[in-house]
Design a protein around this nucleic acid. Structure first.
Lengths: 113, 113
DNA sequence: CGGCATCCCACCCGATACTG
DNA sequence: CAGTATCGGGTGGGATGCCG
């Protein structure tokens, strides 16, 4: 990503970038929440909206699109009436599970400190 | 935070909030990186700037202030000339270590996929 | 050195209305 | 139901300059 600066301390720079890389995928308030709720399985768009009341449908759509572009989630369209769309984690997205668990665990400790 | 919606599914709502709570503390691209670099010990302001070349000093200052307000880091001012300021994790901030490790590990996997 | 104050622009995001 | 289109304000954050 950016390893041009001062060949020294390469190690620190690289690991810093790894954290940045993760945040560029799960950054923003809503992406981690969305992915977290998808850990349970396929979820409909409306359900995600209800599970994330502080985010507008518009935002949820945009975030989902980015997650899809990053290969984290998959979009499943059922050609029916009324339309139904579900989202699920890709195998790659599943590898985020431990990260999300960490985030949740720490958040719970933070809330009850 | 927000538990007004539908007494049912309280669990999902709460865990979702836990993730949100964490992101409200370490959200943003730079906070996790800063905290990560502080895992090694006390670091000077300038050093943090060099370790985070994509963030401006202004941003780093603001993020550090927020982390301080959340009790994650501590600011140590040495009354000398030239001035020296160092930052270090509080015991509470240290509890973020597993989270940061998760973020780094996943980021490395993501970069080399 | 380690900031803070100010200006200013870009973009983020909410609200609303509309479509397949 | 599951979005997209468009508009507009509010805010994040860069650049610059000054201070202790």
């Amino acid at each position: 990503m950016n390893d041009s600066v001062s060949g020294t301390r390469r190690r620190a720079t690289k690991t810093g970038c790894a954290v940045e890389a993760t945040m560029s995928v799960v950054g923003g308030l809503w992406k981690p929440v969305l992915v977290f709720h998808l850990l349970d399985g396929r979820v409909r768009f409306n359900a995600l909206c209800r599970l994330t009341p502080n985010a507008t449908p518009r935002m949820i759509t945009l975030q989902l699109r980015e997650l899809e572009a990053d290969g984290v989630i998959r979009r499943i369209v059922y050609p029916e009436v009324p339309p139904r769309v579900e989202y699920e984690l890709t195998p790659f997205g599943r590898t985020l599970e431990p990260v999300l668990i960490s985030l949740r665990d720490w958040g719970e400790a933070f809330q009850s400190r």
